[in-house]
């Protein structure tokens, strides 16, 4: 599979939020305002590319090498948690503007299952290093795209009158279903 097809497949066909159901907590949690949605998307793109490549390197050159594949889950979560901490400290010192922009979204990423999920998918699909780099980036862009689209729709819903039991998360989920239906049209494209 060429890189172009891989990018299309990861952004649209196998969209991380709407087709694979990973990272739904921030999807529902940060989509009430456009601003937070953009912040979260940027933070995810940044961390996911780093995490995807670093976990790939660790898996291939440490875990496989020393026959420790069964420790994958614990190794990945430790890598992701410390990476997020490290990125936070690094940004605070060297790029304060970006740090202020990403704000509280950085620490939240540790428990974002999209990050962990993509790292595991990269390994399960037996991607090469370049492929996992490209796939991580494309998955993150797909996450951002879906989140920003959803936030746009959700801001409009605030103006509509929704029956009481359906309010908030409930109508949010139904809306997400409609967007997923739109993304469903990409199925079978690649």
């Amino acid at each position: 599979m060429g890189y172009f097809e891989l990018i299309i497949a990861c952004i649209f066909v196998n969209n991380i939020l709407l087709a694979q159901f990973l990272g739904n907590c921030p999807f529902l949690g940060t989509s009430k305002k456009m601003e937070t949605a953009v912040g979260m998307s940027m933070a995810v793109i940044f961390v996911l590319v780093l995490a995807g490549t670093i976990t790939w390197l660790i898996f291939t050159y440490v875990l496989v090498e020393f026959n420790l594949v069964y420790l994958r889950t614990i190794a990945f979560i430790v890598v992701i948690a410390s990476l997020v901490q490290f990125v936070e400290m690094f940004l605070k010192k060297s790029i304060p503007a970006l740090y202020a922009g990403l704000g509280i979204f950085l620490p939240l990423i540790t428990t974002n299952c999209a990050v962990m999920g993509v790292c595991i998918l990269n390994i399960d699909k037996e991607f090469t290093f370049m492929q996992s780099l490209v796939a991580s980036f494309a998955y993150a862009v797909g996450f951002g795209l879906a989140l920003i689209l959803f936030a746009g729709v959700r801001e409009r819903i605030l103006l509509a009158r929704v029956p009481k039991p359906l309010q908030d998360t409930s109508i949010g989920l139904v809306t997400a279903g409609m967007i997923a239906l739109a993304f469903y049209a990409f199925k079978g494209m690649v």
Partner: peptide, 8 residues
């Protein structure tokens, strides 16, 4: 049973 149905 597909993705959209899960959300809805």
């Amino acid at each position: 049973v597909q993705a959209p149905g899960a959300f809805i």
